[in-house]
Amino acid sequence: MGKIAFVFAGQGAQYSGMGKELYEHSAAAKSVFDIADSIRPGTSAQCFSGSDEELSLTKNTQPCLYSVDLAAARALVEAGIHPDCVAGFSLGEIAALTFSGIFSEADGFDFVCRRAAAMQNSAENHPGSMAAVLKLSNEQVETLCQEFKQVYPVNYNCPKQLVVAGEKSELALFVKRVGEEKGRAVLLNVSGGFHSPFMNDAAKELSSVLDGLTLYTPQIPIYSNLDAALYTVEEAKSRITNQINHPVKWQSILENMAADGVDTFIEVGPGKTLSGLIKKTLKDVQVFAVQDKESLQEAMAHLL
Results as ranks from 00 to 15, higher is better:
Lys204Glu: 14
Ala228Val: 02
Gly108Met: 03
Thr143Asp: 08
Thr273Met: 12
Asn121Cys: 13
Gln297Leu: 10
Gly50Leu: 07
Leu282Tyr: 06
Lys59His: 13
Ala9Ser: 13
Lys237Pro: 03
Arg177Glu: 09
Ala185Glu: 02
Lys135Ile: 09
Gln286Ile: 07
Gly10Pro: 12
Leu173Val: 07
Asn155Val: 11
Pro63Val: 04
Ser137Met: 02
Glu298Ser: 13
Ile222His: 07
Leu303Phe: 04
Leu91Gln: 06
Lys168Ala: 14
Gln46Leu: 15
Ile81Thr: 06
Leu91Asp: 04
Lys280Asp: 15
Ala172Asp: 09
Gln291Pro: 08
Tyr66Cys: 03
Val154Arg: 03
Ala236Lys: 08
Gly42Trp: 00
Val77Arg: 14
Asn121Thr: 13
Thr232Gln: 12
Val32Lys: 09
Tyr23Arg: 01
Pro159Gln: 01
Gly108Lys: 05
Cys85Glu: 11
Pro221Trp: 00
Ser224Ala: 12
Met130Arg: 13
Glu54Trp: 05
Gly271Met: 11
Pro197His: 06
Glu267Gln: 05
Asn245Val: 02
Ala73Cys: 08
Glu78Met: 12
Asn245Phe: 03
Asp107Met: 04
Cys85Asn: 10
Leu304Asp: 14
Glu234Leu: 10
Ser26Lys: 00
Asp284Glu: 12
Ser100Lys: 09
Asp110Leu: 10
Ala185Ser: 06
Gly212Cys: 03
Val268Pro: 13
Lys3Leu: 15
Ser196Asp: 02
Arg40Val: 11
Gly193His: 05
Met130Ile: 06
Glu235His: 08
Ser104Gln: 15
Lys272Val: 10
Glu294Lys: 13
Ala259Val: 08
Glu78Ser: 10
Leu55Trp: 09
Val285Arg: 02
Phe8Tyr: 13
Glu255His: 01
Gly179Glu: 11
Leu91Asn: 05
Asp211His: 12
Val290Gly: 05
Lys280Met: 11
Arg184Cys: 15
Gly12Gln: 07
Thr61His: 10
Lys176Thr: 15
Ile81Asn: 07
Arg115Thr: 04
Met257Phe: 00
Phe8Arg: 08
Ala132Leu: 00
Leu206Lys: 01
Arg114Val: 11
Ile39Lys: 00
Thr264Ile: 02
Met18Ser: 02
Asp110Glu: 14
Gly212His: 07
Leu213Gln: 09
Ala5Val: 13
Gly50Lys: 07
Ala87Glu: 12
Leu226Val: 15
Pro83Ala: 07
Ala228Asp: 00
Leu277Asp: 00
Pro218Trp: 01
Phe198Ile: 02
Ser169Asp: 11
Ala228Trp: 00
His302Asn: 13
His126Ala: 10
Leu188Val: 07
Gly42Tyr: 00
Lys279Ala: 15
Thr281Ile: 03
Val112Arg: 05
Ala123His: 06
Met199Trp: 10
Asp69Trp: 10
Ala202Thr: 05
Ala72Thr: 03
Val151Gln: 00
Lys283Tyr: 14
Ser295Cys: 04
Ser16Cys: 06
Val287Pro: 07
Ala45Asn: 14
Ile278Gly: 01
Leu188Asn: 08
Gln291Arg: 14
Leu162Ile: 07
Tyr23Phe: 03
Phe198Lys: 01
Lys168Leu: 12
Ser26Pro: 00
Phe148Thr: 01
Asn242Gln: 09
Cys85Trp: 09
Ile102His: 04
